[in-house]
């Protein structure tokens, strides 16, 4: 009886299709739904209210947006960050009368070129050092 069962199974073997099949190289699906869904291991199987509506307005979107780093509308004058003060609040570009900007406060490209020791010597010797 067992032998006949084995024979029957052997006959079936020729037609058998295994469940495991090679499905080819895995690739990222062309369209993925990125809207928030409950986590598969979440005990409640739901997301709390407000979880999906973080970008309900442009203002809230901007709070989370990225452009060369995080964009934050929360920058205020007290934080002193970029955009914390309006340009007009910084005062005029020209110095008030009687005041002068120190060249050293300007960016380096506006500084005087430093003198080399050879230059100094050339000046002090009336140019003779350049031919010594």
């Amino acid at each position: 009886m067992f032998a006949s069962k084995v024979l029957r199974q052997a006959a079936q073997l020729a037609e058998r299709t295994p469940s495991i099949r090679f499905i080819g190289k895995r690739s990222v699906p062309s369209s993925v739904d990125h809207t928030p869904h409950p986590h598969p291991a979440s005990p409640t199987g739901s997301l709390p209210q407000g979880f999906t509506s973080s970008h309900a307005s442009f203002s809230s979107y901007r709070d989370h947006a990225q452009q060369f780093g995080p964009l934050r509308k929360t920058i205020t004058s007290s934080s002193g960050g970029v955009g914390g003060l309006a340009g007009s609040d910084l005062g005029p570009v020209a110095p008030p009368k009687g005041y002068y900007f120190d060249r050293n406060d300007l960016p380096a490209r506006f500084h005087r070129a430093p003198l080399t020791a050879a230059e100094i010597e050339a000046i002090e010797t009336g140019g003779a050092a350049a031919f010594a």
Partner: peptide, 19 residues
């Protein structure tokens, strides 16, 4: 956090703040 102190996430491991 949920009632057991776990951080609530979605299926892509994002919290309420997606980043």
């Amino acid at each position: 956090l949920d009632e057991r102190g776990r951080v609530i996430i979605d299926s892509e491991y994002r919290t309420k703040l997606p980043h």
